[in-house]
């Protein structure tokens, strides 16, 4: 998959501009960015739904707009917004899509995926919950064993068990040599599934990083609420980096010596203590400057 100087400008000034990104065969890349950054526009250009103003997008050497039929033979696509025909059952939809991929036989893989996602496809789509529709969309995207996957927020609406099953599936796809571009907001998901991560903001790719480097930068943020001003000063003196302060509530990072931090806390009147990992956007923020971080 190759994007070279890919540009699409909408009348409102939004769009994607001069995108360069290349995915090697068998590589899985996470595609991140805030809402409206251009992730979905990139994906629509790759799917041949939109025509670029300039530049070039290709998959397996085929132009995504001019040779979209050949491209779609290779691709499994999961749209960000699930919009199924409501007046069908899950099986009827899968039958329709399978018939449009003939002579490819999708039956065995379809059954396997339905079983894996514990999906009853006999149900009418209009009666399905958001999570069930997402599972159906995943089966539709994967049942023809595509060599390339384009997934827009694949785990949105899935419960933790199904998210886990999806990640297992992505591990298998990676081993099978599938190339994939997936947008996501969840570090754990991208960490397990992806080899690299590309960050897009205001229509431009601002960074592409290896997963290993991002993993090394993953840090914990502690949120502490204390009872007195003196406690705040004690914690500040314990060698932590204060990320944010809201009255007597602090967000802080601990560098190195956790024991010293815990001993300091033991002397304070701690009303609340919470810990959370930095999300991917925050890590990128940390890497690429605070100005961008605040707008993410």
């Amino acid at each position: 998959m190759k994007l070279e100087g890919l540009t699409k400008r909408f009348p409102n000034g939004h769009g994607v501009f001069d995108l360069d990104l290349e995915l090697a065969d068998g590589e899985i890349v996470g595609y991140l960015g805030p809402n409206g950054a251009g992730k979905t526009t990139t994906i629509r250009l790759l799917m041949g739904f939109l025509r670029q103003d300039s530049g070039h997008a290709s998959i397996d050497g085929r132009d995504c707009w001019l040779q979209s039929v050949h491209v779609q033979e290779l691709v499994g696509y999961l749209p960000g917004e699930i919009g199924f025909p409501e007046d069908m059952t899950g099986h009827e939809l899968l039958d329709l899509l399978a018939s449009m991929r003939r002579p490819l036989d999708t039956r065995v893989r379809r059954l396997e995926l339905l079983h894996r996602f514990d999906l009853d496809a006999d149900e009418a789509i209009r009666k399905m919950s958001k999570g069930t529709k997402q599972k159906l969309a995943l089966v539709a995207a994967l049942m023809h064993r595509p060599r390339v996957l384009i997934l827009d927020e694949p785990t949105a609406g899935l419960d933790p068990l199904m998210q886990e099953r999806f990640l297992e599936l992505m591990q298998e796809e990676k081993q099978a040599g599938t190339t994939a571009l997936m947008s996501s907001h969840m570090f754990s998901e991208v960490e397990r599934a992806c080899d690299r991560v590309a960050m897009i903001r205001d229509g431009r790719v601002i960074a592409v990083e290896d997963m290993a480097r991002l993993r090394s930068l993953r840090r914990q943020i502690f949120t502490v609420t204390v009872g007195a001003e003196a406690d705040l000063r004690a914690i500040e003196a314990a060698g932590c980096t204060i990320v944010a302060r809201r009255g007597r509530e602090l967000d802080l990072e601990v560098h190195g010596d956790y024991n010293h931090f815990v001993r300091t806390l033991a002397t304070c009147d701690v009303r609340m203590l919470d810990v959370r990992p930095l999300n991917l956007e925050q890590i990128f923020l940390h890497l690429y400057g605070t100005e961008e971080a605040h707008t993410l």
Partner: peptide, 18 residues
């Protein structure tokens, strides 16, 4: 209607031309 409700995406994601 199929474009508005998004289901056209599934049809055009198959190797059947527009």
């Amino acid at each position: 209607h199929l474009i508005d409700n998004g289901s056209m995406a599934y049809l055009l994601a198959t190797p059947v031309s527009r």
